[in-house]
Design a protein around this nucleic acid. Sequence first.
DNA 1: ATCCACCCTGTGATTTTATAACATTAGAAG
DNA 2: CTTCTAATGTTATAAAATCACAGGGTGGAT
Lengths: 157, 157
Amino acid sequence: MGFQDHDHQHCVSTALATAEAHCAEQGLRFTPVRRKVLEFLLKEHRALGAYAILDLLRDAGFGSQPPVAYRALDFLTQHGFAHKIERLNAFVACSHPGENHSPAFMICSRCDAVAEASAAVDEDVLGDAAREAGFRIERTIVEAEGICPTCVEKPEA
Amino acid sequence: MGFQDHDHQHCVSTALATAEAHCAEQGLRFTPVRRKVLEFLLKEHRALGAYAILDLLRDAGFGSQPPVAYRALDFLTQHGFAHKIERLNAFVACSHPGENHSPAFMICSRCDAVAEASAAVDEDVLGDAAREAGFRIERTIVEAEGICPTCVEKPEA
DNA sequence: ATCCACCCTGTGATTTTATAACATTAGAAG
DNA sequence: CTTCTAATGTTATAAAATCACAGGGTGGAT
């Protein structure tokens, strides 16, 4: 999945179903708050801050204190249904849940759209340097900032 | 520069001199606050939060409100004398100032030591994916979390 | 030398992001 | 049904970052 258009309604419901199945299989509890948060992230298809999510949760009748959102986000990120974009202090739904991957993102600095690279992009971006240094990598964050195809075509702000 | 030992006093003063020269050359003002902040970062040789820096600044007799630290850090990062580690919301001195590079970091999750990879590690980690997507990359963040050589040898916490 | 414009610094206040601590409730296991 | 654990709700607070405005220094133009 990238920046191109697509059948959004469908991609949202598929992703929710996938997450549900995955949770059932692993004995994880896909509770209403967690489901709702994932749904918000899927619908937006861009990075949402924890407090934006919190507002949506309030509107949807859930608890409205920060931990409610952060806990759901922790769950989703820990189990690979969502990712945190460190650059934005914000969160996106995972584009390829299930496949265990170390994700890489492209972030548009104009419109904040976020795309997750589908290619297994790193598999040791830093591998050589790390081995040389004796450093044991556990996780790698890759985030590219730039201009997305949609914004490239528009006149400069 | 990596995790290994080195003549720290020397590396600090060299780096300060380099920065000073670079600023003179470019017509930039290497003011006392800016110099001091870079000095703190160089001395620590690890990531410092803005508020830690702020405390040090206060002790050194400078202003002690957040903007003082953030402005100096903005200057240093914009001109390549320091980098922000997004994962930690913290800052490190650049290990190869001058060389224009898109840095990659290894962050120890035990002791918070940070090393900047010397290899030109990415030069398009995401290049293919980006071209394919029509995304124009302007900057790429690469941060690996893991265990540094020093901590690997120690017993688990 | 004086004036001016601009950049840098200082400060107070506020916003945004995130976590701690504890009470309550809901689900699964026996 | 009881019990244990995990999840939720709420209050409070911590940590990170920015806004807005007031002074001060520096360098260039006249």
